[in-house]
Design a protein around this nucleic acid. Structure first.
Lengths: 221, 221
DNA sequence: CAGTTTGTTGGCAGTGGCTGCCGGTAAAGT
DNA sequence: ACTTTACCGGCAGCCACTGCCAACAAACTG
């Protein structure tokens, strides 16, 4: 699955210098910075928030901030990625014998269970902001497209085909599109606050629409 | 259809000063600049092409360039928009009694007929470039999303519902996703040159996939 | 025709996102 | 201690992009 790189100096035993920061730790730091950035964006707007402010709020130097994020807007990625990963995890756990609709009805949540409620609020706030902030929307769309590839892997494994085939990519892209619209809608209706009822409706919408788009496309795989 | 703005000083007779440039003319100038920008991007890469270079190639000052485009990467928009508008025009012309598959098989082309072959090459070149140029990809995805709304209008009119309903937006987004994957694929297989056969295959792929995704979703509209 | 009004253009200065470079320091091994 | 490897912060600089203003263009008015 991973480790596709050409094996060079593998199994070296003890390395020589200071060990690089683990990906785990790096991602956690990115997420922490992301929370500060989103808060500042929501308070003052994207244009009125400088990289220096984000860096100070996160307790790092500006130079380090740009090492962690390639652009100001991409600071929102880690938070949003959590929400998208939630769906991928649910998709991965799709039992072979179960209908996708049924599975999503039971297992889907719009964000990782481990994430706090504040994170869900922040994610929806960002999605709401993307309405008037083109740069944020662009970052959001890029993230969604990245997720398509992970969806394709799951779908390919299930239908025993290649994740690079056009048919699978179409399914994954259509599924991603459904999720995008549903999430935009959720962000819109929760502008005044999140209620269990709106979340329930969201889950139902996603379950039905995803099933429909996948069923229609996979029949002709 | 248009003219939704609140009527203020309508029917004024002769205006007082220099008339503003018509939208038509403005769009044609944007397209002209776009062609130069795409050529430079393809020759030297995006990072190595400065706004000043684009402006000089197009014969305008850098200042006016930034008045016509809000970012360097968005200079590719007019060319790509032509390709996307081609699909919208075909969709608009969809006869009520005809199957969508049949209609697309007959009428769909990946770019406006009025556009030159060079423009089609340029569009596919840009799509190819988006593979390694994230900023270009982001601009491309933004354009595609804008097109979703125009798709939704057509679909809404056809099914006699609102273009803002979630069901219609899901259909439009899924349709856009199908087109995106198909176009990416076309750009990939035409890297060595465009042949009538690849275009025919592309048309067939789009016709079938779009029909499937729309049929599946609209049954439960 | 000159004079007025409205709109577009281009130059110029400035802002800020972002990068290359370098020295300092942390964390490992020997 | 000494070396090695890696992260961090500060500094200088590039360039995409903007605000401001003077110059010019194209209409109407007298």
């Amino acid at each position: 699955m991973e480790d596709v790189a050409i094996d060079e100096d593998r199994v070296e035993g003890p390395r020589r210098g200071r060990p690089p920061v683990s990906d785990r730790q790096r991602q956690r730091r990115r997420l922490e910075i992301s929370r500060h950035a989103v808060r500042l964006f929501a308070e003052h707007g994207v244009a009125a928030t400088s990289g220096e402010q984000i860096a100070r709020a996160a307790g790092v130097s500006e130079r380090t901030l740009w090492r962690y994020f390639r652009s100001k807007e991409s600071c929102v990625e880690p938070l949003l990625a959590n929400a998208i990963d939630a769906f991928r995890a649910v998709l991965r756990a799709w039992p072979a014998e179960l209908d996708l609709t049924e599975h999503l009805r039971e297992a889907y949540t719009p964000i990782l269970d481990s994430a706090s409620d504040a994170d869900l609020e922040a994610v929806l706030a960002v999605v709401r902001m993307t309405r008037d902030e083109p740069a944020l929307r662009a970052a959001y769309l890029m993230l969604r497209e990245r997720s398509e590839h992970t969806f394709a892997e799951v779908l390919a494994e299930r239908s025993n085909t290649s994740p690079d085939s056009v048919a699978i990519r179409v399914q994954a892209a259509a599924m991603s599109a459904v999720l995008k619209v549903a999430t935009d809608h959720l962000a819109h209706v929760t502008a005044a606050g999140i209620t269990p009822e709106t979340l329930r409706r969201h889950r139902e919408d996603v379950a039905v629409a995803v099933e429909l788009v996948i069923r229609g496309l996979s029949d002709h795989g």
